[in-house]
Design a protein around this nucleic acid. Structure first.
Length: 657
DNA sequence: TAATCTTGAGTTTTT
DNA sequence: CTCAAGATTA
């Protein structure tokens, strides 16, 4: 999983259960791998073994995971075990695998040219635009909900018709219209969204036996990581690809299922044995990561959930330090406690990279960051605003996307006003209705002589179209990085930033340079665009960076750190207030808590505050119900020592308490 | 058309 | 409190 584990791995022999899993060759297997039980090692060793023992050629193995980071790490580890190249092996995320399939098979899904991928931001503006046009009040149909419903139906392979007929769905009729429109818009932009990558592959497989057979013949062995997080579409995709021999090897842990709200079906783990007769179930129960007390405390939190696959995680490690529960006066005090503990350890020689701070909501990061800044502790926030979702990045990329795909009206709208060039809402509306009536893209409408736009805006539009065309012509000849540099300068975007010269704009200009260097490895701009829309922030987490890592509990999954702080252990935060009245959601919060705790190797700190400022008003902090699950003998309680107060010169700013 | 003010909403987000 | 989106004004 991490470098530490990787370096340690070759020295430790596999345990019996790991050995059984690695040596499993034919037929279906379900490996229930507890936190820190070496599941990545099992998958990679097995993949390598299938090849070295001659059961499979590299190109007949497909390994799917959820994050690029996990995929990259897996590939690296497999090739380091193998003496032959593992390049031919498909080790990737679900989405990247589907993208790759679609690149050859898109015609079977009704796409003449390979569609581009619209990311979350694009989806958002598409949905918002549709709702606005439909004149639906956003109080009744907030775009977030609408997007969620559409995604849910897609992942169940249900179209707008089925949505309209869903009697349990409030506002089904309107929602299904929005859904229909949404798909239409994607199609006319020659675009697909993340969900489509999967669902299109599924429908190709279901409608074209010959295509399905070809892929089945190729992928003799399929492995799935983090199986508990697969949604219906992903499971269906896997079931389709798994041929008659059923060489499907799934690894997962129902206790670490934290994406139910996104459509993940823990039930897939329970259905597995039914769907694949004769499944061999293997339990990995020995934990190699955490000290005894930490494992004990974490296990107690999740033990209260009903209907789990019962596993008893154990470790040979010593009990170690007790889990420390710090009761702070308020959020500031809590943050300064964390900073103080890290600072003291650092003075004794600990590396900042050994520490991580987890919280339930992004809003909690601010307080921690402020404390770290005042103590001069280097930190890095993971998650939050993604690099590729920053305004300046999306602005420049919109030019490139438009140049690559002239039907991309969404990118047109963004590019035309970045930087602003005297084409505003009125001209755009005219242009849009012209384009709609002739069924052409906005870009070709901009080039049209008879589009009825006023003279000055028309001139701007023609200039704009000329620059786009030029970028498009260059796209074939120059590499991605050079093209980005060209676009940054020739669209006037860099000038626009440099003229303003505020600190933010300087930072933005720097980000654009970073964008160009991020593209250096990609030859074609199209590949670069695909790669970054499928990239995520957690891909960037690296250890030994010499900085403290701070992130949400969700982002922490799959990582490990010697010392972990979990802040905000209060009812309303963890468990989150919106999840407290439904038992299933409450269980998911429990699992989330468990995931966070089991990231810790040596030392785990939990903290809560007696008073917490939320959205500008003070609330009394009620201890998290999860704390009451943890046995007293592994817990060491600490009262506030107000370490922050002395540091920040007295009861400054926010402290009324 | 673009900058500035006001209002309102705020869980998590692998791709 | 803080940020983003919409409304208003220059």
């Amino acid at each position: 999983m991490t470098n530490q584990e990787f370096l340690r791995a070759p020295k430790t022999p596999l345990n019996d259960a790991q050995m059984e899993a690695v040596n499993h060759t034919f037929g279906p297997a379900l490996v229930l791998a507890g936190a820190g039980s070496g599941k990545t090692r099992v998958i990679t060793t097995r993949a390598a073994r299938l090849v070295t023992e001659g059961h499979a050629s590299p190109d007949s193995v497909l390994c799917v995971t959820f994050t690029n980071k996990a995929a990259n790490e897996m590939r690296q580890r497999i090739s380091s075990i193998l003496d032959v190249s593992a390049d031919a092996m498909w080790v990737s995320t679900f989405h990247a695998a589907c993208l790759r399939i679609l690149k050859s098979e898109h015609a079977h899904a009704g796409y003449e040219r390979m569609p581009v991928i619209f990311d979350a931001t694009d989806q958002k503006s598409l949905v918002k635009g549709i709702l606005k046009e439909m004149g639906v009040p956003d109080t009744d149909f907030p775009y977030r909900k609408v997007m969620g419903v559409i995604s849910r139906f897609k992942n169940e392979m249900k179209g707008p018709e089925e949505m309209a007929g869903d009697i349990y769905l409030r506002g089904a009729k309107i929602l299904s219209q929005a859904y229909y429109q949404y798909q239409e818009r994607l199609k006319s932009n020659n675009a697909v969204d993340f969900d489509d990558l999967l669902t299109l592959c599924i429908s190709i497989f279901e409608n074209r036996d010959d295509v399905l057979e070809a892929y089945r013949a190729r992928f003799k062995f399929i492995m799935v990581d983090e199986f508990q997080d697969t949604n219906s579409a992903q499971y269906r995709f896997i079931k389709l690809l798994t041929g008659a021999e059923g060489n499907l090897f799934a690894v997962g842990d129902d206790d670490q299922s934290i994406y139910r709200w996104r459509g993940a079906k823990v039930g897939n783990i329970f259905d597995f044995e039914r769907d694949f007769r004769g499944t061999r179930v293997i339990l990995l129960e020995e934990n190699y990561r955490s000290a005894g007390n930490i494992l004990n405390a974490a296990g107690s939190v999740v033990r209260e959930i009903g209907g789990r696959k019962e596993k008893k995680l154990w470790t040979k490690q010593k009990a170690g330090d007790p889990v420390t529960l710090y009761v702070a006066d308020d959020g500031m005090d809590e943050a300064h406690f964390v900073a103080y503990e890290i600072m003291s350890a650092a003075k004794k020689g600990a590396a900042y990279g050994d520490f991580a701070v987890f919280y339930r909501t992004n809003a909690q990061s601010r307080t921690i960051e402020e404390a770290f800044t005042s103590w001069k502790i280097p930190y890095r926030v993971y998650g939050g605003l993604k690099f590729y979702e920053r305004k300046e990045i999306k602005d420049v990329l919109s030019w490139l996307r438009l140049a690559v795909n002239e039907n991309d009206d969404l990118s047109f709208r963004r590019a035309i006003s970045s930087p602003p060039r005297g084409v505003g809402a009125t001209s755009l509306a005219k242009l849009a209705s012209y384009a709609a009536s002739r069924r052409v893209s906005l870009l070709s409408a901009a080039r049209a002589e008879d589009n009825g736009i006023g003279a000055s805006a028309k001139k701007e539009l023609l200039n704009f179209a000329a620059v786009v065309s030029h970028i498009g012509e260059m796209a074939g000849a120059s590499n991605a990085s050079a093209l980005i540099k060209y676009a940054v300068e020739n669209t006037g975007y860099l000038n626009f930033l440099e003229e303003k010269k505020t600190a933010q704009d300087v930072a933005r200009a720097e980000n654009l340079m970073e964008l160009a260097s991020a593209a250096e490895d990609d030859a074609a701009i199209g590949d670069f665009l695909d790669r970054i829309t499928l990239a995520s922030e957690s891909d960037l987490v690296e250890e030994g960076m010499g900085t403290v890592s701070i992130m949400t509990l969700h982002v922490s999954k799959g990582l490990e750190f010697p010392v972990v702080f979990m802040v905000g252990m209060e009812d309303g935060l963890l468990p989150h207030k919106n999840s407290m009245d439904k038992i299933e959601e409450m269980n998911e919060e429990r699992r989330l808590c468990y995931v966070g705790m089991t990231r810790a190797m040596r030392k785990l700190y939990l903290s809560r505050a007696l008073n917490r400022n939320l959205f500008g008003s003070w609330n009394r902090g009620v201890p998290s119900i999860f704390l009451s699950s943890i046995p007293d003998d592994v817990l060491e309680k600490k009262k506030s020592v107000n370490v922050g107060r002395t540091h920040t010169q007295g009861f400054s700013r926010n402290s009324r308490w």
